[in-house]
């Protein structure tokens, strides 16, 4: 179909731009449900050659060494397996790539595991090809400082900087809070590419406060005494940013997901998960049943 050029028709169809002439715009209603992105369509190289497992007596789960809580998640994975009366089969992902697209876990799960530990329960945060279990623990994003005079965020004078791990719900909440303040009462907020960068900036003194995922602070303090000098602030005037952490399974594994959910509920109720978290001195609590 060919259409001859007709600017008046085009303008009446929609919004035409005229140089230096302001034009009214129209808007429509709020968003529909999120549409799947191409990036959300999983693909595993050679996926048609990857077979399906036959051994149904094992609980195959993955943990990723890049996650600060991977050892805790592994202990929880073993406990879930025991609750399901299955033999735990752990696969430890050992990659060094800093940040990956979530579709990468599709290939890992096709080859190595049915349950992948370590995902935040963010509403509308996932594509339709995966689904989340219930949370096996809850933890927080935390404001961290080295200056002992700072005990709560409100102690930080305006103009002093915060290095926030970019794009987290806590970062968004902080930015949203600040946008309601007059300019002279704001803190400069610098986006940090990772929790590690935020904590390093704090140690170097290039920011006054870091906003990070609590498990990352925990992991850093375990491995390096320098981070032991850092302390967590009360978040006020902001509320705590608490979120659950669970596992993902492929969306078609409905029975498996139900079974894992039931196991997590049972392990929460009988105190097993709390025991694991306390055993690691991990900054989290078992999620409420």
């Amino acid at each position: 179909m060919r259409v001859a050029f007709d600017i008046s028709r085009l303008a009446s169809m929609f919004l035409a731009l005229a140089l230096a002439i302001p034009i009214a715009v129209s808007t429509v209603g709020n968003a529909a449900a999120q549409e799947p992105e191409f990036d959300d369509v999983p693909f595993a190289n050679g996926q048609w050659n990857i077979g399906r497992r036959l051994d149904e007596s094992q609980f195959r789960y993955c943990v990723d060494k890049r996650d600060p809580d991977w050892e805790v998640a592994a202990a929880i994975g073993d406990a879930i397996a025991a609750a399901l009366l299955l033999e735990p089969q752990r696969y430890v992902v050992e990659r060094e790539i800093a940040v990956e697209d979530i579709t990468k876990i599709y290939a890992i799960m096709l080859e190595h595991c049915d349950v992948h530990m370590g995902f935040k329960l963010i509403p509308e945060g996932y594509a339709r090809w995966i689904t989340l279990t219930r949370a096996y623990y809850e933890t927080q994003y935390v404001f961290v400082a080295s200056d002992p005079a700072l005990q709560k965020l409100a102690d930080l004078p305006p103009g002093h900087s915060i290095g926030a791990t970019v794009g987290t719900m806590a970062h968004i909440r902080l930015v949203s809070y600040q946008s309601a303040l007059p300019a002279e009462k704001r803190w400069p907020v610098f986006p940090m590419g990772s929790n590690e960068q935020a904590l390093d900036a704090l140690l170097k003194g290039s920011v006054d406060v870091a906003l990070v995922w609590a498990p990352n602070l925990w992991a850093k303090q375990r491995e390096d005494a320098a981070y032991g000098e850092l302390h967590v602030l009360e978040p006020s005037p902001l509320p705590p940013s608490t979120i659950g952490v669970g596992a993902v399974v492929l969306a078609d594994q409905k029975f498996l997901r139900s079974a894992v959910d039931e196991a997590i509920s049972a392990l929460t109720a009988d105190g097993t998960l709390d025991g694991i978290l306390k055993g690691f001195d991990f900054p989290a609590t078992a999620a409420a049943p």
Binding site: V28, A31, A32, A33, Q34, E35, D64, R66, D67, P68, R95, I97, A98, V99, E100, D101, I102, K104, I105, G118, F119, K120, I122, E124, G125, Y126, T165, V166, G167, T168, M169, H171, I172, W213, N216
Partner: peptide, 20 residues
């Protein structure tokens, strides 16, 4: 939207575009 579902597996952007 926050797009930090896992420690490693995260999105590049922080906005959801529902195309219409």
């Amino acid at each position: 939207n926050p797009l930090d579902p896992g420690q490693i597996y995260t999105g590049g952007g922080l906005q959801t575009y529902s195309r219409v």
